[in-house]
Amino acid sequence: MRPGATNSLVDVAGLRVGHAHRVGGGYRTGTTVVLAPPGGAVAGVDVRGAAPGTRETELLDPRNLVERVHAVVLTGGSAYGLSAACGVMDRLAEAGIGYPVEGGVVPIVPAAVIFDLGRGGTFRATPDATFGTAAHAAALHPHGPPAPRPYGAPWGTGNGGGAEVFGGAHPAASGSVGAGAGAVAGGLAGGVGTASAVLPGGATVAALTVANPSGSVLDPVDGTLAGARYGLPGEFGHLHPPARAEAAAWRPPNRPSFNTTIGVVATDRALTKAQCGKLAAVAHDGLARAIRPAHTMTDGDTIFALATCAGPAPGHDEFQEILAAAADAFARAVAHAVLAATGREDAPAYLDVFPSAITRGTP
């Protein structure tokens, strides 16, 4: 296997990704949207955490009516943040994209949230519909964030005297962007991470995660990023086990927390709704390889699966390969999320804590 051109979710033909976040003025949160092709993508979901915040997940049961979704929203803000999906839904409806009903269309937009309340200082500084609108706009303008107006106009300019940033990011970005702006991963800065693989038969499989777990993302033996061991050749070749003194000195905060890791796995092959459900389920194996413990009582771990159906339906053996690649891609995405995240006072970056883990100056 090899990674796709950008080693990200957008390597799956037809998918677009947009990020919007707000940092400052009491905020440290954001929203990420994955847009399906105009005709939608076949979708499934698997919820493993005991404290999920979700929308439209029951619709993805293979026994239920709708086969395709038009977007997936991943967002901060806990249950408050679910309103970000309304902004995406409005923009899709304006474009005539959705499930056809008498008189119009109803866009199908499942969503899941992470818990990041108060990480910018203000408990109710959470994403709303304007975050979804901005993330949708960013997905349609992949060479950079949309114009400042979608951020500044709805949210105002008051920031209590501190620097306030409204922003987006490239669709292939990893780190403290979009829904991962306020993420924390076992005491370290978390964020958005993404990875892809092209299988020998030509199928593309990719993952995007918002890594915000209460569990550790570190190998308990040597402090390496647990997800990095599933990297493709050369992907994490610049990383090394950190110095023993650094590993021994790391003491993550020992306090109760609510967290959650959410994400999307996708392929360009034509899958059924039931197969998408299986794809989401197996991707949780990758989550559990990269995070220990996973699926706890204070995590709402949720993974969506999308099939754009740009390619043919896989045979039995190829579907097995797709499942295996999805689990590895999700683990790799978690590692990229933590490695690229920006440190802050309450959540240092991985390389702030373990500077010896990287050979400076190497790509």
Rank of each mutant, 00 (worst) to 15 (best):
N7S: 10
A13R: 15
G14K: 11
Y27D: 03
T32S: 15
L35S: 09
G39R: 10
G40K: 00
A41T: 07
A41I: 13
G44R: 02
V45H: 02
D46H: 14
G49T: 05
G49P: 05
A50R: 14
T57M: 11
D61Y: 10
V72Y: 07
V73K: 02
G76N: 04
Y80V: 08
G81W: 00
C86F: 14
C86N: 15
A93V: 05
A93W: 03
E94W: 10
G96E: 11
E102P: 11
E102D: 14
V105L: 07
V105S: 06
V105H: 04
V106M: 12
P110Y: 09
V113N: 01
I114K: 00
I114A: 04
L117Y: 00
G120I: 11
F123G: 03
T126E: 02
P127Q: 06
F131W: 01
A135R: 01
H136E: 05
H136C: 05
A138W: 04
H143S: 13
G144F: 12
P145N: 06
P148A: 14
G152A: 13
G156W: 09
T157E: 13
G158P: 07
N159K: 09
F166L: 04
G167M: 02
P171S: 11
A172S: 15
A173G: 12
A173L: 05
G175H: 04
G175D: 06
S176L: 12
S176Q: 11
A179D: 06
A179H: 07
G182F: 00
A183W: 03
A183Y: 00
V184T: 14
V184A: 12
G187K: 06
L188F: 15
L188C: 11
G190H: 02
G190I: 01
V192I: 12
T194V: 08
A197I: 06
L199F: 14
G201V: 12
A211E: 03
A211F: 03
A211V: 09
L218T: 07
L218E: 04
D222W: 08
G223R: 00
L225K: 07
G227T: 11
P233N: 08
P233H: 11
E235I: 10
G237A: 15
L239H: 10
H240W: 06
H240E: 12
P242A: 05
R251L: 15
P252C: 08
N254C: 09
R255W: 08
N259I: 01
T260G: 04
V264I: 12
V264Q: 01
V265Y: 01
V265C: 07
T267F: 10
R269T: 14
L271F: 14
G277S: 05
K278H: 14
A280K: 04
A281T: 15
G286R: 01
L287T: 01
R292I: 09
H295I: 10
H295D: 08
H295C: 12
T302E: 08
A310C: 12
G311D: 11
P314K: 05
G315Y: 07
F319D: 07
Q320K: 13
I322R: 03
A324F: 08
A325W: 06
A331L: 09
R332N: 03
A335V: 07
A337S: 15
T342W: 03
G343H: 04
G343Q: 04
G343D: 05
A347C: 09
L351P: 01
P355C: 07
I358G: 02
T359I: 14
T359D: 12
R360I: 13
G361P: 13
